[in-house]
Design a protein around this nucleic acid. Structure first.
Lengths: 206, 206
DNA sequence: TGAAGTATATTCACTGGTGAGTATACTTCA
DNA sequence: TGAAGTATACTCACCAGTGAATATACTTCA
């Protein structure tokens, strides 16, 4: 790690980030990335031991920034829990209207590498999604919601559904619909948790 | 189209179906498919004008069978609307526990080809998803639900969310969670529609 | 009816190009 | 000087797509 070094590594990672996200994993070669980074392929192999390694680094580099963004959207939104959750979906709708938007990089990578369940990038992706689910569950439980974990999971399902569906239809309105569904589920749980002190049934039936 | 003809074409399509679904689009070459089908690559090019063309045919061949399956699950489930919707998710959970399950072929193809929005296969995929959404909306409206279209969309979001999330975590339980969320949303709309005759507001607020 | 012609279906062998990954040598700075 | 970092130039495998030839059936008309 000397003067120029981390510079080249950063440039590779930046190029990988843009290209893998924009085009997909298998659609982008290390030659492409090297060219974009303005270095040789051999230098890529100096800093990353294989393409798979670089793919893993690509997703790892998105982990914290992405989570921070969700947290920011949530924290800065006005209103109660339902509004804060809905705000995340509204922000995603906004992002999705940018022409360069191509869905969730984690989800798309998982879809593309579905035939390699042990791939290191898959683990990074799964961990990222788990972190989000856990963070939201904690937010819910801090606010006194009893079924925070289950609710968080439902919101996650709507969120990933929005990512996928918007990508299929190229229609960001799906994020709004998902936001409304999430809002309804959160409202319901807020009602549930405040009415009965520590009740644990979710549905009237069964 | 003589006797032998459609035979080769079918074998190609069968091989493409299995391989594209199992491995992904760009991970599978036409050499691979030709070998699996027991014919020459040139024969593949006789029946399909390009790889893209074959990918489109692959998704098109899954359209009706997939929709039929969802309809069957829905129709054969006991109980009311909420139960019928939940049944779809339970069936998906069951499918997802098979080792060969790799998510939704339409969604995965869309994720992989996200950089080619005009790709013919993308159109087939979008149309497929729209058909499902429309079918479910009609089922809802036939049962007298006012907000059938919006509700159908919410269920779709949960469904595609389940596909994506299960794939990431390799955990079919997400389908059950999605099913519970869907059930809650349907129950809410049933309540909404029966209480007020033809009201059209979905949420108490705004 | 049967030979000549035509459309369908398939193969073998190939091309131009790209993929991941490497052997080796040069450069630069501490 | 010697280790970190980078480049040139390469290997070998594969990939989408093609050229030329052939086999098989389906007409057509003398």
């Amino acid at each position: 790690m000397s003067r120029q070094t981390s510079n080249a590594r950063d440039r590779i990672l930046t190029a990988a980030n843009k290209m893998f996200y924009a085009e997909g994993i298998r659609a982008v070669s290390l030659d492409n990335i090297a060219e974009k980074a303005g270095i040789t392929k051999k230098t890529v192999y100096y800093h990353f031991k294989s393409k798979d390694d670089l793919v893993e680094a690509y997703l790892a580099s998105r982990d914290q920034p992405n989570l921070a963004l969700y947290r920011k959207w949530f924290d800065e939104a006005d209103g109660g829990l339902p509004d804060k959750v809905a705000a995340i979906f509204r922000q995603i709708a906004t992002s999705a209207r940018h022409p360069k938007w191509k869905g969730c990089g984690f989800l798309r990578t998982a879809a593309e590498l579905a035939n390699m369940p042990g791939h290191p990038a898959m683990k990074v992706g799964a961990a990222h999604k788990k972190k989000f689910e856990l963070w939201l569950a904690q937010e819910f439980e801090t606010q006194g919601l009893v079924g925070g974990a289950a609710l968080s999971r439902q919101v996650v399902l709507l969120l990933d559904g929005a990512f996928s569906t918007i990508l299929v239809h190229r229609d960001a309105d799906y994020a709004e619909a998902a936001g409304e569904a999430a809002r309804a589920l959160v409202e319901r749980e807020v009602r549930n948790s405040t009415q009965r002190g520590s009740g644990q049934m979710e549905s009237a039936s069964t």
